[in-house]
């Protein structure tokens, strides 16, 4: 059993200004698996009314990264690479939901697969495959721990010169 709650994931998302600006909402969470959704917004349209790929990328990146965060040493992960395949246009006006699964975990790297759908769950809008750094620190369980961990992460990344 995982002790991660949807509230934990939501508080994490809300701490990321860009994810918050896109209105992302945590829907489901368990260890190594997360579902996050995002409302349609005309401001995010690319060609015509359809959501721009870049908006879908943000959802895929956040969902994939957050799935890694729920692993025992997932906090402080960083995206190494993320490849997104765009299957079809998301229907304008519909919410887009992404579901991520950490399908292989090594000492230093986590491999994540993510799929996104709109209201038609029979056909994905996009899929993604990513590699994330792993093995940094235990995930925080309380808002105070979250604050401290984000600070520690910042210090560590500064040390690494990133």
């Amino acid at each position: 059993m995982s002790d991660f709650s949807v509230d934990w994931v939501q508080s994490f998302i809300d701490a990321l200004p860009y994810s918050k600006a896109l209105g992302m909402r945590a829907d489901e969470v368990s260890e190594g698996r997360v579902s996050i959704s995002m409302p349609y917004a005309q401001a995010l349209a690319g060609d015509g009314e359809v959501l721009h790929g870049g908006a879908i990328s943000a959802l895929m990146d956040t969902t994939s990264g957050t799935a890694v965060m729920t692993l025992p040493k997932g906090l402080g992960t960083a995206t190494l690479d993320l490849r997104i395949d765009y299957m079809r246009a998301a229907t304008p006006g519909q919410r887009v939901r992404a579901s991520a699964e950490c399908y292989h975990i090594t000492r230093t790297v986590v491999f994540v697969r993510t799929t996104a759908w709109d209201e038609d769950e029979s056909k994905p809008v996009a899929t993604a495959a990513g590699a994330f750094t792993y093995g940094h620190m235990r995930a925080p369980r309380t808002p105070e721990e979250m604050q401290a961990a984000m600070q520690a992460l910042a210090t560590r990344q500064k040390e690494l010169g990133q």
Partner: peptide, 18 residues
């Protein structure tokens, strides 16, 4: 609003990708 981790702060990977 383009920030991911506000403690660094660093650009959000999704903003970079977009």
């Amino acid at each position: 609003k383009l920030i991911g981790n506000p403690m660094l702060p660093a650009l959000h990977g999704g903003a970079t990708a977009g």
